[in-house]
């Protein structure tokens, strides 16, 4: 017989290293023609940080994505941005890039303020036009850059960001381990075959608070990939070690989810703005998989009344526990 069940799980995840300094830095150069180069030490490992950081630079500089060239993760050229880990790069490198862009932009803003005879605070840069707020006055970015160059002014910026944390007390754990946290809720629907112990995850509904989705499609991609990874962790993936020796050293015996194993994934992006984040963004890389095994485990209980206490969930263990429950 096949029995369905639904389970729910929450998670929280501190963005950045725990109670330790973990700065990132970046350089931005606004070029003569209004395009820009961003230098960041941040390593894109496929999750999309190059794109996110270019978006942040483009937004801050009021130019288009195509106008931004980004060079990342080359120690001969790019400044240190720390590790691509701890779901930290959007939040920390994102801030660094934004501050670098802001510093480069400051040069043209000051120059525009001088040319338009207004306060620099009144100047905004958008669509390559510097406008004095509340007036009709404006100057194109190109003209302003040209003026800057005539005076020998380059438009360069450096930015760095180190999240505000307090180290944990060694006895009580008291402290401020992270400057901000990501939050999420996932709901799993599963079907358990009571004769074979087979578990099929039918659907996952995943709501993630990311502060602000810099790139919604990328956030969905992180959630979908994270759920898949969490599903494998919960049901099939196990490195078997006997006396220190790994027994399954290939992808035929270590089973990660295939396209046939991944259920329908419904991603819901929740934006509870993070005031210290770049455009109020936090992080999502790791949060994506954290609640998945727990949600599936709770759904299994809902389906067959057996509590999951070990990962991965083995069919034979589940069957045995179901039988034991029936007998008692």
């Amino acid at each position: 017989m096949k029995k369905k069940g639904v389970g729910i799980a929450n998670m929280w995840y501190g963005i950045g290293n725990t109670g330790l300094p973990n700065p990132a830095s970046a350089y931005v150069e606004l070029l003569d023609d209004g395009t820009a180069i961003v230098l960041t030490g941040c390593a894109d490992i496929g999750q999309g940080s190059d794109t996110i950081l270019a978006q942040i630079a483009a937004e801050e500089l009021g130019i288009d994505m195509d106008d931004v060239a980004l060079i990342s993760a080359d120690t001969g050229v790019t400044p240190d941005a720390g590790k691509t880990s701890a779901s930290r790069q959007t939040y920390i490198s994102g801030n660094a890039v934004r501050f670098a862009a802001r510093e480069a932009k400051g040069v043209v803003i000051d120059e525009a303020a001088r040319l338009l005879s207004v306060d620099p605070e009144k100047i905004t840069l958008r669509n390559k036009i510097l406008t004095a707020e509340g007036t009709e006055k404006s100057i194109s970015l190109l003209d302003c850059l040209n003026e800057c160059r005539k005076q020998g002014k380059l438009t360069l910026g450096h930015g760095s960001f180190n999240p505000e944390v307090i180290a944990l007390n060694s006895e009580t754990g008291e402290g401020k381990p992270y400057a901000c946290y990501g939050f999420a809720t996932q709901v799993a629907e599963v079907e358990v075959d009571t004769e074979t112990g087979d578990i099929t995850v039918l659907r996952m509904v995943c709501a993630h608070d990311v502060g602000k989705a810099v790139n919604p499609s990328n956030v969905e991609g992180q959630i979908e990939g994270g759920v898949s990874n969490g599903l494998g962790y919960c049901l099939t993936e196990e490195i078997v070690v006997e006396n220190g020796v790994i027994k399954n050293t290939d992808l035929a015996t270590y089973l990660i989810p295939t396209s046939l194993d991944v259920p329908e994934i419904e991603s819901i992006i929740v934006e509870d703005p993070e005031m210290t984040g770049p455009f109020m963004a936090k992080g999502v890389g790791e949060p994506a998989l954290i609640p998945t095994p727990a949600a599936i485990a709770n759904a299994i209980y809902d389906a067959v009344g057996v509590r999951v206490t070990e990962l991965p969930v083995k069919k034979e263990t589940l069957l045995f526990k179901m039988l034991k429950k029936e007998v008692s």
Binding site: Q55, A58, E59, P216, F279
Partner: peptide
């Protein structure tokens, strides 16, 4: 925003 928040 012009770029941030868009699925570029």
């Amino acid at each position: 925003n012009r770029v941030v928040g868009k699925s570029v």
